[in-house]
Amino acid sequence: MTDPVQTELDEFELDALTELVNLGVSRAATNLRDMVGQQVLLSVPTVALMSRERAIEVLGEREPKRLIAVHQVFEGDITGRALLIFPEIKSLELVRAVTGSDLPLEDIIELEQEALTETGNVVLNGCLATIANLLHRRLKISLPELLRGEGPEFFNLAPPPERGDVVIFIYINFVVKKHDVSGYIAMLMDMPSLSALKGLLRDFIYRATGDGAPDGDIPA
């Protein structure tokens, strides 16, 4: 049974969204690099559109263990939640990567919470702010909050905002100071927001390419 959400954006809109995500994640990497002080290697993110149920399924399949998520809410023409999700076991690693290995274990443990939160904050903001800018929109993005748990919990948080049915599911992989951190960015929104997004994407395409349709001819 085909996921109905998947068909919501056409090929070009998806391509545009992917490009936006690319740009956003690149920005995030740059910001992360400034925090860390060393080059952050970034893989090409994969972008998929799916329903919330499907997203929970996928996450459950891929990351069976306990997860950590940095959570932010965005409001504006599109409203929803953004989550940076990665396995809990990676958390200390990430903190070390971000803070430096010199700190004693206890400090790391103490700082884990805050460090993770801020790191997640940097990544999410990098993405969201870039996307918002390119879509020529100003979103109000909340302060970050750290969650521990599993997929279903993350995707079933109490409103506000209202529970959305659409998930833009982005798989990313950073290498920070030789620490391999791969995770997901999930942007949850409701259908109206998706429609709005669709419109914004169209505008973006138009602005970028000069017209709304793809150019098949390449002048010789």
Binding site: M35, T99, E114, E118, N121, V122, T130, L139, I141
Partner: peptide, 25 residues
């Protein structure tokens, strides 16, 4: 001038994004 605070300010002004900066980092 450069660094987290500067980008945080920029992101807040241009994109409406909120940021935290922890003493731990």
């Amino acid at each position: 001038r450069h660094g987290r605070l500067a980008s945080a300010i920029r992101e807040a002004l241009e994109s409406g994004a909120s940021s935290v900066m922890s003493h731990s980092l």
